[in-house]
């Protein structure tokens, strides 16, 4: 039986900042398999976002080895990491980061601008994705005029647009009530499953733990499986 390459492997990863090299993360180890739905839990400020930023290549580990979809994040060049993010990874930010002055469709279409095909070719898929996420009436609405839940859905559509192999979601249910949180989680997980993507949720929301397959806890700069 052929072995399956993990989507994500952290081996003794550390991250330190500042002149005094203050440790944010120490000897972190975890592994996520293709198509797996995982959660990274821990209190605010524990380092969950830092881990997600390292996985996406926006930060580089200061120790250990981090391999994402076969790419060594510590050693890869900027262009290689950018290509990894644009073609194989989708990110749902904690604060959505939809660009003002752009419509829902334009915001969801953004990753396509950094892909290898004309962005316009993805317009139909964006509309389909937004429609599936219940945003058909707001396709041309400006981002700043959407509710928080609607903006979250646009962010999910943006993350799933290019059928990524790995989706990272930072506090996707952050300020939502139970009903909205359940909806968003189910949309995110369904979307990832439909595309066969791995999903890693960084959250301090215990509600997420009921729907994921594996959970890692970040505490005191260390990552341990729950």
């Amino acid at each position: 039986m052929a072995s399956v390459t993990p989507a994500l492997v952290l081996e003794g990863v550390g991250f330190a900042v500042g002149k005094n090299r203050r440790d944010i993360l120490v000897n972190a180890c975890m592994q996520v398999m293709p198509g797996e739905i995982c959660a990274l839990v821990g209190p605010s400020g524990s380092g969950k976002t830092t881990i997600l930023n390292m996985i996406s290549g926006l930060l580089r580990p200061t120790a250990g080895s981090l391999t994402v979809l076969g790419v060594d994040v510590g050693r890869a060049r900027d262009r290689e990491l950018a290509r990894l993010r644009s073609r194989r990874m989708g990110i749902v930010f904690q604060n959505f980061h939809l660009l003002p002055g752009m419509t829902s469709t334009e915001n969801a279409l953004l990753p396509a601008y950094f892909g290898c095909a004309p962005a316009g070719e993805y317009r139909a898929r964006v509309r389909d994705l937004l429609g599936r996420l219940g945003l058909a009436p707001w396709l041309d609405a400006a981002a700043e005029n959407l509710s928080e839940g609607q903006r979250q859905r646009v962010a999910i559509a943006r993350a799933l647009l290019l059928r990524p192999a790995l989706v990272l979601a930072d506090e996707p249910t952050g300020n939502l009530d139970d009903s909205s949180a359940a909806t968003i989680l189910s949309l995110l997980i369904e979307g990832a499953r439909e595309e066969g993507s791995s999903l890693l949720l960084a959250t301090h929301d215990r509600r997420c733990l009921q729907v994921v397959e594996r959970t890692f806890v970040v505490d005191q700069g260390r990552v341990v499986p729950l």
Binding site: R79, F93, P111
Partner: peptide
Amino acid sequence: AERIGVYRALGASQSD
């Protein structure tokens, strides 16, 4: 800065 950060996070390289 936020827009640039979003571009980078969504796949723009420094040269992009």
